[in-house]
Write a protein that binds this DNA or RNA. Structure first.
Lengths: 214, 214
DNA sequence: TATTGTGAAAGGGTTCACAGCG
DNA sequence: CGCTGTGAACCCTTTCACAATA
């Protein structure tokens, strides 16, 4: 146990397990087996056990896993259950939708600053916040202890904005702009590229015989 | 060549290659090597050649790939370059942001219908469209020849909505609701789960020594 | 007895390395 | 000679199978 690496797919599954455990807990269950967790998530019991084994051993043989305990430990492992400050760069429609989405807040992700470079948008009120000039990124990030950046700019601006984030100390970036960003080692970048997801769908529609693996 | 399976990661890379080829074409280049394509996309030349080899051989040894030709073939392979009808279910902020995003239209994805089950939203005008009662899903999907469905409902409604889509003949679904959907074999489903992406970021922030594999 | 935790085996994607060819 | 196309080697993830144990 405790290697120094985990696969992207394993990490995603852990997030799913956390949600399933919350469901089970809400139902008052106090024990689950790897089998039940697997069924709920469309995977196998061996997979569940292997995924958890990256971080220790949480179950009791013959019995299964204690639901509230495993839920709490998983939350801790994933780093949720504390408050995370998030900066949004790009005060467009998508940014507004993300800002309004309270699923984030429920999970501890708080958008505490919004930036743009368009003078017509700077100064507008967004709920409690005011859209700031992206030139103020560094000052606000430090003031508010922001650790996560979300890029929701047009494609052209994305690379520059991401670099600015890195320059002011942000090391975790979620990028919605349809552009492959190049960032230094040590910065964690995740992409959400809607065009690519849609293209994968129409690939599948176009090639009916084909299977798209995971 | 022509196996019956392609990995998700290879498919994503093909979408990126298509974009890079468009860039190269705009620059007036008429030839590229796998090496150049690889550099642009942060991968290796062998990877590029293997990815393309799934679908045939497009290059000339000693020379590279003809840019406009490969661009056209890749577009054809991915199924873009024709018009795709898309239905959006969920007339909330995120749906509105996706509807307004013209990157989709540019790639041939046309949102031609929007549905909701909230009487206060049904009937509202969205640009050229009017938000329809989700009960009309089947009728409109057939009328307009819709082939792709996007789920942008709250988590609770997602499973039911996706099933309704499948029931009226949609076989390609993009799901934004933070819920693991269970759908019959033969339906292509892709998930965009923002909470999970953010959790992966805060995992990385919490476990500085760890590497998150791809 | 039921179920975990884990080495070992299998599977599949990526990288290597070179033959083939323009 | 330069670069593609591809079999083979490598590596990582998933699955299997079973010893360990509450």
């Amino acid at each position: 146990m405790t290697p120094r690496r985990i696969s992207d797919s394993a990490l995603r599954r852990l997030s799913h397990y956390l949600r399933f455990l919350e469901e089970f807990e809400a139902q008052g269950r106090d024990t689950v087996s790897s089998e039940e967790l697997a069924d709920r998530g469309g995977t196998t019991s061996a997979q569940v056990r292997k995924d958890l084994s990256h971080f220790g051993s949480f179950g009791k043989r013959g019995l299964g896993y204690p639901v509230p305990d495993l839920r709490a430990r998983l939350a801790r492992i994933l780093g949720v259950g504390r408050r995370w400050g998030v900066a949004l760069v790009g005060a467009g429609k998508l940014g507004a939708a993300l800002y309004a989405y309270d699923g984030f807040r429920r999970r501890g992700f708080h958008v505490v600053a919004v930036f743009d470079d368009d003078p017509r948008k700077i100064g507008r009120r967004w709920g409690q916040l005011e859209v700031e000039d992206v030139a103020r990124l560094g000052a606000t990030v430090h003031e508010k202890g922001i650790e996560i950046g979300i890029v929701v700019t047009p494609a052209d601006a994305a690379q520059e904005v991401a670099q600015a984030m890195v320059a002011v100390g942000i090391t975790a970036i979620l990028n919605f702009a349809p552009r492959k960003l190049v960032l230094p080692e040590g910065v964690t970048l995740r992409d959400v590229n809607l065009e690519i997801e849609l293209e994968a769908l129409c690939f599948a529609l176009t090639h009916e015989g084909w299977e798209v693996g995971r």
